[in-house]
């Protein structure tokens, strides 16, 4: 489905739900769940910062294409570090990571940007650039890809409408509320239609009702075929949405919940 049609469908669903109480999300688009293709694979991965202790130890798991996982664990358990490895901000100290079937230890550095463009990230602190407007922040991944101005205008406009930030297109992040900043960060993460969406504590700074709405949005992206991993502390959400859970404890991954491909 073309991106514009997809966003129009999402926008319609969004407006149907009023974003003030999403009640019904019809199945939009094709779920690309493909059990045979592992978009992310970790094998005995260990990671340390500098010469410090290992923050992740012998982490092994596979994420099939189009899956949805929660990543849980106490503060300091290594959730953010695991996500940093997944979005290629960090290299492991040991072990094997492959993303889209590409072994990261052998992939040339110049090819990493192409892989990163397939991964959308919602950071815990949003990481919006203060000197850019909401529009420019959301447009950033398209701009670095070299998209034409027309494409940028069209897609970013649609996405801003989707996340309900149409009226804030020219606003700077500092003038947005926390929720608005978060929606801008989500829009930026999905503007290039990534194959993987990683979100680090996206519900950390919002109330429960908003957290549920947010999860519905992310779930909708998942239904479009995006592989989603959400790091969260919010057990109510995990209970409610019932997706497989990757649980970290002191840097060691343990299985919680239903996940047929987990082999840790």
């Amino acid at each position: 489905m073309p991106l514009s049609r997809r966003f129009r469908a999402l926008k319609a669903a969004h407006f149907r739900a009023g974003f003030g109480g999403i009640r019904c999300w019809g199945a939009i688009g094709r779920n690309r769940l493909n059990e045979t293709f592992r978009v992310i694979r970790f094998e005995n991965v260990g990671m340390r910062y500098g010469t410090g202790p290992e923050v992740l130890r012998d982490v092994s798991f596979d994420l099939p294409d189009g899956s949805f996982h929660f990543l849980t664990g106490a503060s300091g358990a290594g959730k953010s570090s695991l996500l940093r490895l997944m979005y290629l901000a960090q290299r492991p100290s040991r072990g094997l990571i492959s993303i889209f079937d590409r072994d990261l230890s052998t992939i040339p550095r110049k090819e990493l940007p192409m892989l990163r463009r397939k991964i959308g990230v919602v950071y815990q602190d949003f990481r919006l650039l203060d000197h850019l407007t909401t529009f420019e922040n959301v447009a950033l991944p398209l701009k670095v890809k070299g998209a034409s101005e027309g494409v940028v205008r069209k897609h970013v406009g649609e996405l801003l409408a989707w996340v309900g930030l149409n009226d804030q297109a020219h606003a700077r992040p500092a003038t947005l509320s926390g929720g608005q900043q978060q929606r801008a960060a989500i829009a930026r993460a999905v503007v290039t239609r990534p194959q993987i969406l990683l979100a680090d504590e996206p519900t950390g700074n919002v109330d429960d009702a908003y957290a549920v709405r947010l999860l519905f949005l992310l779930q909708e992206l998942h239904r479009q075929g995006t592989t989603v991993v959400i790091a969260t502390h919010n057990h109510a959400l995990i209970e409610r949405f019932r997706h497989p859970v990757l649980h970290l404890e002191d840097g060691i991954l343990s299985r919680v919940g239903e996940d047929p491909v987990y082999d840790g």
Binding site: L129, H131, T133, E136, R153, G157, A161, N166, H170
Partner: peptide
Amino acid sequence: PQAKNAPAKRRTSDIP
């Protein structure tokens, strides 16, 4: 709406 939302044409550096 897209054209309305688009920022005025100016070359903004991503780095401040």
